[in-house]
Amino acid sequence: MVITAPILMDTLPSAPTIRPATAPAPAATAPAGQAAPAAETLIDIDHVDFFYGQSQALHDVSLQIEDKKVTAFIGPSGCGKSTLLRCLNRMNDLIDGTRVAKGSIKIRGVDIHQADVDVIELRKRVGMVFQKSNPFPKSIYENITFGLRLQGVTNKARLDEVVEKSLRGAALWDEVKDRLNASGLGLSGGQQQRLCIARAIAVEPEVILMDEPCSALDPVATAKVEELIQELRTRFTIVIVTHNMQQAARCSDKTAFFYMGKLIEYADTRNIFTNPANAQTEAYVSGRFG
């Protein structure tokens, strides 16, 4: 029995009073983020137009993602939020006929679409967790060490250390420490997704992109992943795409609302959910469309 995100979201309109109650949560759980006044910009998205073949998926999107913060992208299906996320580590390169027609995306000042950028290096620094958990059909241990082995790390002690650290980091260690050599496919859905997160943090990226990481999980597993995101925020910059507004409200520091390929509003999460500047944002977060 799986309750999917849209169903959760559907509960919003019927109980609008919950919203103000949950919205301040980020502020409460992340006082550190608030206390640091001048957050440094890590990713600078500057007037980006993006095309799938002939159809334009992003229209002139500009936003700055801050270092060591959780940024949520929300919006209805097909609004371009996932597309933008996949631009950040150039996963869109894998899809035929895609191109950034205008604008630039800079990470620490380096334009990642520049010709001399090594996309492999980029992806090492900008990890990704996918909507559908995708552990490799290998053991848990091999899943975690996959990225490190690619980089040529063979030292057993070092690998063991990283495995433990990553699994602890992903709050999975206690559940799997006795069966590290079991197949990653034998884990439950939520565990698989956390394994993927552990796999991503094992290579110590600066940024972790999460593409609807909880959409295929049940509420209990979702809660665990959300908890995990709270723990990771101190070490990594996290960008999360979500369908679930409560999730965005609970986990993120800043929220960007996309609609029809345009960035409608980008502000502190609290503001988006309590006091949106734009009428469309207001309509969406209060559950009137989407």
């Binding site: 990470i107 620490r108 000042g109 380096v110 990642i112 520049q114 001399d116 950028v117 090594d118 290096e121 980029l122 620094r125 600066e206």
Partner: peptide, 11 residues
């Protein structure tokens, strides 16, 4: 942090 990053990104 920014300078090693740009080094690493460039191929």
């Amino acid at each position: 942090a920014s300078s090693p990053a740009s080094h690493l990104l460039v191929n």
